[in-house]
């Protein structure tokens, strides 16, 4: 078994050296392309000069092209080596948000807005299946299901049960703290990634935070939809935790957050483009925005979306 070693710092030094070599080869090729034998040079010598200048120029351009992908390749390896050198950061970026969601799920019994929304959605869906209509101006009774869910949410929020109030509050604070630390790790990773532009560093971090919030809401809604507002308890916690972990796992596998962040970065960078287009790219749905990113992101985003639907189906949302 051979040993693999990578020194990111030494590799970083090589990048400008490679770029300088490419510039030298390209510059010499351009200079040679403009060389021709002046008048007075014997025909055979003039022909030889033209032939050598042409062939060497072509060889130099080819050699430069062969190196063209090297700086980006080295950047990717530097990034990978940094991750390998700091496994705690990789583990933390995955684990901390999940732990944060888990801690906050202890407060699922006192319905949060997202829990109440999930419960209301479940009630409305049940009403629709029972033949009720929710069109405006209908009979008074058509809103019963919604009112019932709202009342249940208010009651549950006002009267948390089954968990000491102090513990619930502490779990909530701890959850927020873990989530913030997770965001900090993500921001630090993005900030030190040499492969990202400044815009990408900012947008990837922002989108990651937004996606984490979305996953949190998703987790709460999943818990409510599964078990209702009055008896969430451990089952609700597991459901919320499962939804959050499912999102984290999907995002770590498919890098949907990064893709959306890059799409937003592209839009931000396209200052000269139409403002409407940029807004469309930023504000569009995640899969739409991801489609704008090169490197086959559309299929990846599609797969992530499909996988996310399956995962949420499993947990009952």
């Amino acid at each position: 078994m051979s040993a693999y070693t990578v020194d990111p710092a030494a590799m970083r030094v090589a990048i400008p050296a490679v770029q300088a070599l490419m510039a030298l080869l390209d510059g010499a090729a351009s200079d040679l392309a403009g060389v021709s034998a002046p008048a007075g040079v014997p025909g055979p010598v003039a022909a030889r000069v033209a032939q050598v200048a042409g062939s060497v120029s072509a060889d130099l351009r080819r050699a430069s092209r062969d190196l063209a992908s090297l700086p980006d390749d080295l950047l990717r390896r530097i990034s990978a080596a940094q991750v390998a050198n700091a496994p705690w950061a990789t583990a933390a970026s995955f684990g901390l948000p999940a732990l944060g969601f888990y801690a906050r799920s202890f407060t699922a019994q006192s319905l949060s807005r997202s829990l109440a929304a999930g419960l209301a959605a479940r009630e409305v869906a049940a009403g629709l299946r029972a033949g009720q209509s929710y069109g405006g101006g209908g009979p008074r009774g058509t809103w019963n299901a919604f009112r019932a869910s709202s009342a249940a949410a208010r009651a549950a929020t006002a009267n948390p049960r089954g968990l000491p109030p102090g513990l619930g509050r502490a779990a909530s604070v701890a959850g927020r703290g873990l989530t913030f630390v997770g965001w900090g790790v993500t921001a630090a990773q993005n900030a030190t990634n040499p492969h990202l532009s400044t815009t990408q560093k900012v947008t990837r971090t922002a989108v990651s935070i937004g996606a984490g919030t979305g996953a949190s809401v998703l987790g709460g809604a999943a818990a409510a939809a599964m078990v209702g507002g009055t008896a969430a308890g451990p089952v609700g916690a597991v459901a919320a935790f499962g939804a959050a972990v499912a999102w984290n796992a999907l995002d770590n596998k498919f890098h949907v957050t990064d893709k959306v962040g890059d799409a937003a970065a592209d839009a931000v960078d396209a200052v000269g483009g139409a403002a409407g287009d940029a807004g469309k790219a930023v504000g569009g749905a995640a899969s739409d925005a991801a489609n704008e990113v090169a490197d086959g992101v559309s299929s990846v985003a599609g797969g992530a979306k499909s996988a996310a639907k399956k995962a949420l189906g499993v947990i009952g949302l």
Binding site: Y4, V6, M11, V18, L21, L60, D73, L74
Partner: peptide, 30 residues
């Protein structure tokens, strides 16, 4: 000058060094 990619050993590192040597060789022959 041939860029030095120090402290990197792997099959890919060997290939990269080969590409750099080839480019410098083309320059020398030219």
């Amino acid at each position: 000058p041939k860029p030095a990619v120090a402290s990197w050993s792997s099959p890919e590192a060997t290939r990269v060094r080969g590409r750099l040597s080839a480019a410098v060789g083309v320059a020398g022959r030219g």
